[in-house]
Amino acid sequence: MEGRDPTMKITKPEELQQHPEYKEVLVELLFQLADDDFILSYRGSEWLGLAPHIEEDIAFSSINQDTMGHAAMYYQLLEDIGIGKADDLAHQRPSSERRNAVLLEEVNGPGHYLSEPRYDWAFAVVRHYFYTQAKKVRIDSLKHSSYEPLAQVAVKINMELYYHLMHWRTWFIQLTNAQGEARERMKKAVAKVFEDFGGVLTLGVKGDRMVEFGLIESEKILKQRWVQAMKPVFAEVNLDLPSEFGMKRGNGRNGEHTADLDEAIMTLSEVYRLDPLATW
């Protein structure tokens, strides 16, 4: 066992060779961060051309690009550590090796992105908003991570998150405060998202070690901050904020996933798999 030194900082990937346990836990955290952004950005990209209006199509697409860019930065950190090439990590790993929250892999709604999509905008708004707030809490904590290359990435990501959060909060409040069908749809979407939201907030089985190594703050603290941030918004839309969140369809941090993820991986790697060794 390595001793815990709260002031310890790792500044370069090469230093990890002396800290095998630290490295193992760091890799776990980086996969969670990378896989979360990667799969949600993929789901967002399926919405292309289908958003409620053209202006939103442009804004949403811009957010998806940023999010894919964040995933690429995390995969690059993994590549720098020697885990594998970023593109291979993103495209090649089977669902059992993925660490994203199950909520983020769920399909956008009935239908396929090219044929008869009946996507649910209420679900899109709630999932993106709640996730983005959780991401903001996480990024704020990662800015002080003991792994300095990660802390630097967190500072970069944080700048873009401000706009994402504002975007989704605006949609959430507007639609939930609208009367009639919109409010009903939003309430249903909130209930649906909460069923699996516990999976977004957890750090998985290695969570305690992540905290010990000063990589990120504890699950409990992060969750409290999320609740604190959401409280005034829930008051504004006159909805109850639960204190516990479910993991109805499993804990993605442990590699538990649904068929939705398998299908997504098949699609997003379709061209890559034609020849993983070729230059594309």
């Binding site: 993929y42 990209s45 399926e46 292309l48 051309g49 053209i54 199509d57 442009i58 697409s61 811009s62 998806n64 690009q65 894919m68 860019g69 995933a71 690429a72 995969y75 970023a86 593109d87 993103a90 495209h91 992105y113 090219l114 699609t267 997003l268 379709e270 061209v271 890559y272 034609l274 594309w280």
Partner: peptide, 25 residues
């Protein structure tokens, strides 16, 4: 649109996302 989620690398995914977004713009 069909090729945005399927683009074969992270760089290509980012490139084609930006490109199609411009077209909508």
């Amino acid at each position: 649109k069909e090729w945005v989620p399927k683009a074969p690398s992270l760089r290509r995914k980012l490139g084609i996302m930006a490109k199609v977004q411009d077209e909508m713009g």
